Simulated assay, not measured.
Amino acid sequence: MDIRRLGAEEKFPMDLLLLADPSKKSVEDYIKRGECFIAEISGKVIGVYVLLPTRPKTVELVNLAVAEEMHGKGIGKLLVMDAINTAKKRGYKTMEIGTGNSSIGQLALYQKCGFRIIGIDLDFFIKHYPNEIFENGIQCRDMVRLSQDL
């Protein structure tokens, strides 16, 4: 598997980006301002992440997705670790992530990768998304914020 920055002339893998964030408007906004990285196997894109600078020396991992047929193979963890290493090389001191309260697998993954919960943005998904989101039989209402010193 190869992980690389998406070229300026390449199309964003919207199908994957929308797996992690169902708001096309939000995705289109932050991919213009951030850096998009893809994971490929034999030329096929199987994963993606987006880094977005938010404050001096702080970057947010705003999107992380793995093709559904590739779930359970450790690719998500490899992408998170690549994002951390990329951010360190670029001189960032802090990485942040936000995910839904219903995203149980993602919450576990991020904590396994060294992130700590620093806060909750109550009703974030109710206020900012037009349609209800359900995962794991739980309504996604709140944004759980996590952070890691790099």
Rank of each mutant, 00 (worst) to 15 (best):
S147A: 15
G43E: 09
G114T: 10
T94A: 06
N136S: 14
E10Y: 02
M81W: 07
I46H: 04
R141A: 05
Q139S: 06
K11Y: 02
Q139A: 08
I46G: 06
R33G: 07
P22H: 12
N136Y: 02
I38M: 06
L17I: 09
I117G: 10
S103I: 01
K127G: 11
I97K: 00
M143G: 04
L150A: 10
L18E: 11
G100Q: 06
S23W: 06
F134M: 13
S42F: 12
D29H: 14
Q148A: 15
G74N: 05
Q148V: 15
M1I: 02
K77M: 08
Y110L: 05
M143C: 10
F115R: 00
L19N: 09
K89P: 02
S26K: 13
T99K: 01
D149E: 15
P53D: 06
A83M: 08
F37I: 09
D142Y: 00
I38Y: 01
I75M: 03
M14N: 02
R55Y: 13
M14C: 03
I133T: 06
D123G: 02
A67E: 07
M1R: 05
L16D: 09
M95Y: 03
G72L: 04
D29W: 15
I3G: 11
E135T: 10
K88H: 02
Q111Y: 05
K11G: 07
I97Q: 00
A20C: 05
Y110F: 13
G98V: 01
C140W: 00
A108L: 12
K77H: 04
I75T: 06
S42I: 07
L122E: 12
A39F: 06
D142V: 04
G114L: 03
A39I: 08
I3M: 08
F124C: 02
C36Y: 01
